[in-house]
Design a protein around this nucleic acid. Structure first.
Lengths: 169, 169
DNA sequence: TATAGCATGTAACGAGTTACATGATTGG
DNA sequence: CCAATCATGTAACTCGTTACATGCTATA
């Protein structure tokens, strides 16, 4: 059911076309949720049928812009505040980390180095985003969330560095 | 495809029945991957047909214990070391956090308090696990992973506390 | 002897991914 | 005018969840 609220939430931020939503899923939401256009277009149809969103305009290239309705806004708030969150996570990286102890030391180091390179890359991207946002009037992402992302990735980076160091010692 | 390797990985740790694997998914792997018995039993059949695991014993209550084969071990290593990891995550909590700025301050605080309570609970559980493990010969979970879990949850807890404080100030 | 927990399976449904398919507009 | 990108949709398939269904064993 989360896709429904993800779409509803993005439309609460601003009216958008399905195409724009697809891009937002890729750019801003990719770290926690993903959805392709083949999921989004049918979901928009369902949400419109349920009266939670409506068509607010049609533009070039037969684009259709949807906006959230008052009913939709109420339903979104209800979900965010009153519905019990599903705390479960699905992360292949977490699974891999869990299985890492099965590898021999050389293979384990190789995977840690690979992961470290990735985390450092992520961290650089987040720090660049934070610097950009400092001088943007309307930030695309809530600044404290970027900060949280940096903190979490820093912990990960340090943990990986310690694993690598303690093994080569 | 991850379920395949999750099952293979757990069987590489020790031979198990489907029932035991189901419990391990709930207890040790629930933070990164979940699978119910209705997924596990068919997967065991597929893995056996592929020659990656085999039946190593039958016990009481028609239980069937499977073990990993050499082929299975090689395939698991290949996946862990050579296959490009899928870094995508699926987390409803992350989605909720992303949408939090849409709420008015009172509602936002309510969700932060709810999340903080949950994180503090998690943290207590992880710290208890860490204390237990100190005097266990054969730890069920790799100690550095528990440590990582504690660090990540600590960052989350502090971030939530800051959000709550800065709003009530 | 009943009930709780061990233990395995299948079926139906819903969610998510990949592939297929088409049309419109802008810029080189 | 052609390629890239914008823009929307459907079909087939795989993965995951919930519900259904059954049988075994220990213990109270």
């Amino acid at each position: 059911m989360s896709l429904r609220y993800a779409v509803l939430g993005l439309l609460a931020r601003r009216p958008s076309t399905g195409y724009e939503l697809t891009q937002t899923f890729d750019r801003s939401l990719s770290t926690s949720w993903h959805a392709g256009h083949s999921q989004i277009y049918p979901e928009l149809a369902k949400l419109e049928a349920a009266g939670l969103i409506n068509l607010v305009g049609e533009g070039a290239r037969r684009s259709k812009t949807y906006g959230i309705t008052d009913t939709g806004r109420a339903e979104l708030r209800r979900w965010l505040v009153e519905a019990e969150p599903d705390r479960s996570q699905r992360s292949e990286s977490g699974l891999r980390l869990f299985l890492t102890p099965l590898l021999d030391p050389a293979d384990r180091m190789q995977t840690f180095e690979r992961d470290l390179a990735h985390v450092e890359h992520e961290l650089a991207a987040l720090e660049a985003l934070q610097a950009d946002q400092a001088d943007t009037a309307e930030p695309e992402v809530f600044a404290p969330q970027v900060d949280l992302g940096i903190r979490v990735n820093t912990v990960l980076r340090d943990w990986l560095r310690e694993q690598i160091e303690s093994a080569s010692a």
